[in-house]
Design a protein around this nucleic acid. Structure first.
Lengths: 202, 202
DNA sequence: CGACTGACAGATATTGAAATCTGTCAGTCC
DNA sequence: GGACTGACAGATTTCAATATCTGTCAGTCG
């Protein structure tokens, strides 16, 4: 019990407990035990267990957001940039699912229960997609009249490669083929896409 | 106990029991009770409870497959035909989810556990998509070098509008906008899409 | 004979009592 | 005074005893 208990120390301990026990078994008492304090002290920094879980997950997602920063390498087309980004996202998610199953499961629980964390996460990543599409529109490689809406459509169309509900399918040996086919279709669509305003343009 | 017990009568009774109690509560004993026979008799027609559940679900899905037969109306483009078909599928699934929640839940259970029924279902519907795309290729409205693979990509890209794992999102007021955007993107992609054989065409 | 029954073993689900956990707060300790 | 404790009430979870269910099969009945 060296220094005063900090929120950061609690978050680190919670992440550790979560990694060890998973979201179903981890308790606030466990976290306090890991820190050598009473569980009452934890409640001095986080109002509820849910808030604590959210804070840990947000920290974890922020690391992903940073890693997923788009790479606008010279000499790459917007299509190549987008494909690379989607592939990196897919790889990252698969990686999380097998290498940190408990943190992934924590995120899965949050997706089912709350809405604010998933919204935060998706909003951030769709923003990245929008930047890539925007760059493509500027070079006239892509066509769209609403970048944000189109970015959301790209996100939705590739849903099965990043939504945790599909995690169990990511182990399928043909999943990469499915990914390639969907991404090719989506990229082809970006070359000439208009979202219907009222009636379908079909 | 009028006639000899038939498989068909058992299926009808099972569907009724499933509608009433849902997949979690429905038992073989309930089915037998509904038929006025001992549960041993049911096992004379179906080897296991799982087989019975599968048979009922298959019957239910076959009705959907028939309803989802593509409509090649005169004067409609392939794009319009595809959009109509996807919309009908989406509406049908949403309808099932709210109007026959127990049968939908039974299908959901099957998707998690087994693989043969979902494969059967998806294979059938992707076949329908392939027929629509094929017609579009013939009129040179669509371009693809592998109709089946492209049909699967269209299926995967619209996943969140038919996969039961996303059923809870179908109540969102903006879901139709998301659907329209994804379908527009996909249809735009079909107008010029090539699946990469080894390296990406990006 | 062949459709059906009913009793049975092992597996699964339900129940209710005991244990643990969450969130609070008056009180301790530096 | 402010960080921390520890005991507490109500909610949730665990656990083991009990009941129900699944699948089998020897035996009944027409």
């Amino acid at each position: 019990m060296a220094e005063t208990l900090t929120g950061e120390a609690i978050l680190a301990a919670t992440e550790e407990v979560l990694r060890r026990y998973g979201p179903a078994k981890a308790t606030v008492v466990d976290v306090a035990k890991a820190l050598g304090v009473s569980h009452g002290s934890v409640y001095r920094h986080f109002p509820t267990k849910a808030a604590l879980r959210e804070a840990v997950t947000r920290r974890w997602l922020d690391a992903i957001h940073t890693e997923m920063e788009p790479r606008f390498d010279q000499g790459l087309t917007a299509a190549e940039t987008l494909r690379d980004w989607l592939q990196r996202l897919f790889d990252r998610k698969r990686h999380s699912h097998v290498d940190e199953p408990e943190l992934f499961a924590t995120f899965q629980v949050l997706v089912k229960e709350s809405d604010t964390i998933p919204t935060y996460h998706v909003g951030h990543l769709v923003g990245h997609v929008a930047r890539i599409i925007s760059a493509g529109v500027e070079t006239q490689e892509f066509v769209t009249d609403d970048v944000r809406k189109t970015a959301q459509a790209v996100w939705d169309a590739t849903d099965m490669f990043h939504h945790p509900a599909h995690a169990q399918e990511w182990g399928d040996p043909h999943i990469q083929d499915a990914f390639d086919a969907v991404v090719s279709l989506v990229i082809a669509g970006l070359r000439y896409n208009r979202i219907p305003s009222a009636a379908g343009d079909a």
